[in-house]
């Protein structure tokens, strides 16, 4: 999904990045995208293995599940809503939420968005079409709107005593539709696709989704982060900004003079910047060790 604006073919022949491109295969430029699709579809496949083939490794759905008959997992955001709605949860749900919360804290919070969430496939497809059709960005809501929506979900659960958000939440709705039967669920899939295609560029995942906002908060202190490790090698081709679903997270790391770490919780650790960068600027890193090395390297002031 390289941008039409800055695709390698359109670069000037003398551009340093153009010389490198010959050594980077298509597969190398898509490696994280392909890995993500494999994980997203693989996880969906594991949930479908039971109802389709009778192999019950995973039971349930993204809201809560049981793995291999013993391991409980549950979505911390839904468990928090339920806690606010009825005032108590079970130990099982709490344990499941802690396991999932700890896992996503470790791998970067919004790694859920880019590596697991089935809606990501829909919105990426919409974005792909949008780029091909060269549509204008459309509605651009303010960056923190999703945090207001997140607050709304929690307040609404507390006030109504019910999981209001779960009545319409496309994230669980789409996965539940695929695993338990679609019903009118296809209408939600279509609505999200059309919203991202026609109303707002990267609108759902990038601006509105409160589930993503929640995992963004979880990931604020995550150890697994992208770093613009070799930012001196950057040729300003703009490929990373074009491909990134949250381009504002790159700027301080790549263009700033401070830390090279992408620290914003909005970063989804999707790895697309690693995919498309022909100058090999970015890499995944352990944030705290990297920050310590940076401190040692930088002149103390």
């Amino acid at each position: 999904m390289t941008s039409a604006r800055t695709s390698p073919e359109q670069r000037a022949p003398g551009h340093p990045a153009t010389r490198r491109i010959a050594r980077r295969s298509w597969w190398l430029r898509q490696r994280f995208l392909l890995a993500r699709r494999a994980v997203q579809l693989g996880l969906l496949g594991l949930f479908l293995l039971g109802p389709v083939a009778g192999i019950w490794w995973a039971k349930g759905n993204l809201a809560a599940s049981t793995w291999f008959g013993v391991i409980p997992l549950s979505d911390p955001f839904i468990v928090v809503q339920s806690l606010l709605a009825v005032g108590h949860v079970t130990v099982t749900a709490l344990l499941g939420a802690l396991l999932i919360g700890a896992f996503y804290w470790l791998v970067g919070g919004r790694a859920f968005c880019s590596w697991v969430c089935p809606v990501n496939i829909i919105t990426d497809a919409a974005h792909w079409c949008r780029e091909r059709l060269r549509l204008p960005p459309g509605w651009r809501p303010q960056r923190n709107l999703r945090h207001y929506l997140l607050a709304m979900c929690l307040v609404s659960a507390a006030l109504t005593g019910t999981l209001t958000w779960e009545l319409v939440n496309p994230v669980t709705l789409v996965q539940r539709a695929l695993v338990f039967g679609v019903g009118l669920g296809w209408a939600v899939i279509l609505a999200v696709f059309l919203f991202d295609l026609l109303v707002s560029r990267r609108g759902w995942c990038g601006h509105l989704c409160p589930v993503g906002a929640f995992y963004g908060l979880v990931g604020r202190t995550s150890p697994l982060r992208v770093a613009a490790d070799r930012r001196e090698a950057c040729t300003d081709c703009g490929d990373c900004f074009a491909v990134c679903p949250e381009p504002h997270v790159i700027t301080p790391a790549l263009r700033g003079s401070g830390s090279r770490l992408v620290l914003a919780g909005d970063c989804t650790n999707c790895g697309r910047c690693l995919d498309v960068c022909d100058d090999d600027v970015f890499r995944f890193t352990e944030r705290y060790a990297y920050a310590a090395r940076e401190r040692d390297r930088l002149p103390s002031g």
Binding site: G60, N61, A63, A64, S82, A85, V86, G161, L163, R176
Partner: peptide
């Protein structure tokens, strides 16, 4: 019903079992 709608996380584990 009211309390049920606040407590149920819609996971379908009851359905599966």
């Amino acid at each position: 019903e009211d309390a049920f709608l606040g407590a149920c996380v819609r996971c379908g584990l009851c359905v599966r079992d």
